[in-house]
Amino acid sequence: MEFVVKPYKSIGPIKLGMTKKEIRSVMPEKPEDSHNIRGPYTDYFIKSSLFAYYTEENGVCEAVEFTEPVIALFEGKQLNGIPFAEAKNWLENFDSEMTFEKYVGVTSYKLGIGLYAPKYDEEHEPDAYVEAVIIFKKGYYD
């Protein structure tokens, strides 16, 4: 599945601000009911490897995190499943002030996009891949 990222708005058919019911209606599978991986206000869609984070039990979506098989496309470029340095360099074209955290990745507060690459180390693992992408609403990390 290829999903287009629209900063602070959506990833594919999932729009930030949708209710749990709305997200479940656009996903091709039911969420796993018995997980407690990321907390109680989360849907986990196993086959899609996608987490939807909600503000509360019946709240609205404030972030979506995913890995392959979902492919994130931003401005025509794939963000995950590629070398972290390549994805980071691409995003720097749109946000030169991203926050880098070693063994985590980068977060663009300007775009509402984060790249997770825990194995990346410029000296020892420069070719490490982006393992996950998160898109989030403004204020999510406040």
Rank of each mutant, 00 (worst) to 15 (best):
M1N: 09
M1H: 03
M1R: 03
E2G: 05
E2L: 05
F3C: 12
K6H: 09
Y8I: 05
K9T: 06
I11C: 02
G12M: 00
P13Y: 00
G17C: 01
M18A: 07
E22C: 05
I23T: 10
I23K: 01
I37G: 03
G39E: 13
Y44I: 07
F45L: 10
I46A: 01
I46V: 04
I46F: 01
K47L: 11
S49F: 12
L50V: 09
L50Y: 00
F51T: 10
T55Y: 00
E56D: 08
E56I: 00
E57C: 00
G59Y: 00
E62H: 03
E62S: 10
A63K: 00
V64F: 00
E65T: 15
E65L: 08
F66M: 05
T67V: 12
E68D: 07
E68Q: 15
V70C: 12
V70L: 11
V70R: 04
A72R: 06
L73A: 06
F74M: 08
E75W: 00
E75Q: 12
E75S: 01
K77L: 01
L79F: 03
L79A: 09
L79E: 12
L79D: 12
G81K: 06
A85Q: 07
A85M: 08
A85E: 13
E86H: 09
A87V: 10
N89D: 15
N89I: 10
L91Y: 06
F94S: 05
D95G: 11
S96A: 09
E97G: 07
M98Q: 14
M98H: 13
T99E: 13
E101A: 14
K102S: 14
V104H: 11
V104M: 13
G105N: 12
S108A: 14
G112R: 01
G112K: 08
I113S: 05
G114E: 14
Y116S: 15
P118I: 02
K119N: 15
P126K: 06
D127E: 15
Y129F: 11
A132L: 07
V133F: 01
I134A: 11
I135C: 07
I135D: 07
K137Q: 05
Y140E: 11
